[in-house]
Write a protein that binds this DNA or RNA. Sequence first.
DNA 1: TGATTTTCTTGACAATTGTCCAGAGAAATC
DNA 2: GATTTCTCTGGACAATTGTCAAGAAAATCA
Lengths: 210, 210
Amino acid sequence: MTALTTRAADKVDARRNQLAESALKTLGELGYARASLREIATNSEFSHGVVHYYFRDKIELIVYCVRYYKARCVTRYDAVVSESTTADGLLDAFAAKLVETLHEEAPMHRLWYDLRAQSMFEEQLREAVTMIDRTLEEMIWRVVTRYAELAGREVVATSDTAYGVLDGVFQQALLALAGGEAAALDRITGQVRALMPLLLGARVVDSAAS
Amino acid sequence: MTALTTRAADKVDARRNQLAESALKTLGELGYARASLREIATNSEFSHGVVHYYFRDKIELIVYCVRYYKARCVTRYDAVVSESTTADGLLDAFAAKLVETLHEEAPMHRLWYDLRAQSMFEEQLREAVTMIDRTLEEMIWRVVTRYAELAGREVVATSDTAYGVLDGVFQQALLALAGGEAAALDRITGQVRALMPLLLGARVVDSAAS
DNA sequence: TGATTTTCTTGACAATTGTCCAGAGAAATC
DNA sequence: GATTTCTCTGGACAATTGTCAAGAAAATCA
């Protein structure tokens, strides 16, 4: 019985994910405000009524989508961290990955910034948004600390500052890109190369290697 | 006749500004999506029909509001720049002003971030948003260059990077504040104190003063 | 004061929205 | 194969939206 229940729950979750998938496509295209449930359903293979079978209301769908979206984000820079062997190499790989993300996932990211802004008005969004924000901060922190480790230096900024700084220039690039400014891709590469070293302080002396 | 026309135009502009004023209040409270023309009109001293007498449609009202809002922003840190006599003093004044802004104009700023995000979906908003963004960047740049000048050092970051970085942590603070995290005010003070020096490079030798 | 223009109000409109529901269809269970 | 449960459809609902227009009210001008 437990097994059956679990399997049924899995099936429901699978359908929820399927709906979230197409909902995210519509949301990324139209943004939070303009994406109606009917439009979302039209861009899926179901009718508009099915949404209320799997989600209580619109906000629950959105929140589910936001959480679902997070799963794709967390590992984005893991390869950058694990496969880089030098500080400069990591810098290159990180910048390249940022550019790739801006290129290929722009709709997803403008949706993210949209939702984050909406969360300042709609309290129901806040918890999910805060959770993702924390996850993103940790992701960036892994990159920065690995960078410092490879450089043999210490990080002089806190985790939130590092995230805030890089998120700021990333958002700037995304915005410029939305305005057709293709040069934004080159610009952010330079910005990251310039900023990351600034986050590092004096050379660390490894006391175990004397 | 020119004088009369001008005076009439001034009167129209005055009414437009009056409407923009109360519209901004509603927009700051509800955000771009949820602020209907009726709600905006209700929070003004006019009926909902008057909006279409002074503005062609909703988007024109919003854009007008955005531009009107800009006028209040540009001079916000002028006193910080002109009245500071030491680098550390400027840092203090700048951080204090940021905190004050976060405290007193939070609704206005969450509206700004909302509109900026919307501009990635709605092309009609883009021009006005881009213009304000440039203005804000210049404003920050005046602070940063003045800071470098007082410190007798050069700025190692470009104007857009400086703006992106500070805007990032500011937005982070605003978001945290919306979530009731009062500690965000102290945090951003520390962040600014830590970040600004990082934007400066080696000591500048004033060749004229040798 | 009377005429004319400007300004504003009120009500109406079509469209869109989120939500709900009755029932059709599919799947699972017995 | 019959029955029950799950899944989905399509239409209806009230509420809200931006927009518009007809006319009242106010201001301006003669």
